[in-house]
């Protein structure tokens, strides 16, 4: 599913979500896949607040030309993988543009302000409308639901990585995913992760 080379250098990916969603791990996996293919990757992440319900974002810069800033310049994201719906909207303010590919996990995590009734969480079609107004390429994926069906909600992140690869614009795919996961997982866990990856990839391959 992967391309031969980078369609842009540096290619800028944002993985965004909420503390506790496994954002940092997801960005490591994707980054290591790219390192595996020989690319220079710089990841910038803020995880001081990562366990405590704040917005958490990783910036992945992929290049054949060395290290870049761990913060993507304004308006220069090429792909956004959002593990939570409104987080996708939030990153567009600083990094968005009309061509950015946006992949959204469809499962909301409500901010405490929303839980407390002080703030409003927009309805699903409002979120979709907002994102489509900001980019030509938006996909919603029921990753957490699928992951619960597979037996563990955390697999939602793997489904999202699979979906990102399924888009067919990254120079990596299943082989690199398997290679990276092999290094960090027990054999019995590998299979379910591959299933999740394939599931995500298939969702995008069908629509892209």
């Amino acid at each position: 599913m992967g391309t031969q080379t980078l369609s842009k250098d540096p290619f800028n990916i944002i993985i965004t979500g909420v503390g506790g969603q496994g954002n940092v791990l997801a960005s490591r996996v994707l980054a290591n896949m790219l390192v595996h293919r020989g690319y220079d990757v710089t990841i910038g992440e803020t995880f001081g607040a990562s366990q405590r319900g704040g917005s958490v974002m990783s910036h992945i810069r992929v290049s054949a030309r060395g290290a870049w800033s761990p913060q993507i310049p304004k308006g220069k994201a090429d792909m956004v993988v959002s593990l939570e719906p409104v987080e996708a909207i939030r990153v567009m303010k600083d990094y968005g543009n009309e061509e950015v590919r946006i992949l959204v996990n469809d499962r909301p995590i409500y901010p405490v302000g929303v839980i407390a009734g002080e703030l409003n969480y927009p309805a699903r079609d409002e979120i979709e409308g907002a994102l489509k107004d900001l980019s030509k390429h938006v996909w919603f994926i029921d990753a957490t639901e699928e992951a619960i069906r597979l037996g563990n909600p955390i697999l939602g992140n793997v489904i999202m990585i699979g979906a990102a690869c399924g888009l067919g614009i990254l120079p990596v795919g299943r082989a690199e995913f398997a290679e990276v996961m092999k290094g960090s997982l027990a054999a019995d866990k590998l299979e379910i992760n591959l299933t999740a990856f394939d599931l995500g990839a298939a969702k995008l391959a069908a629509t892209a």
């Binding site: 607040a49 319900g53 704040g54 909207i89 901010p111 405490v112 302000g113 703030l119 409003n120 409002e126």
Partner: peptide
């Protein structure tokens, strides 16, 4: 549309 996420 993106309600603030206060730390908690």
């Amino acid at each position: 549309k993106a309600p603030n996420r206060e730390l908690t």
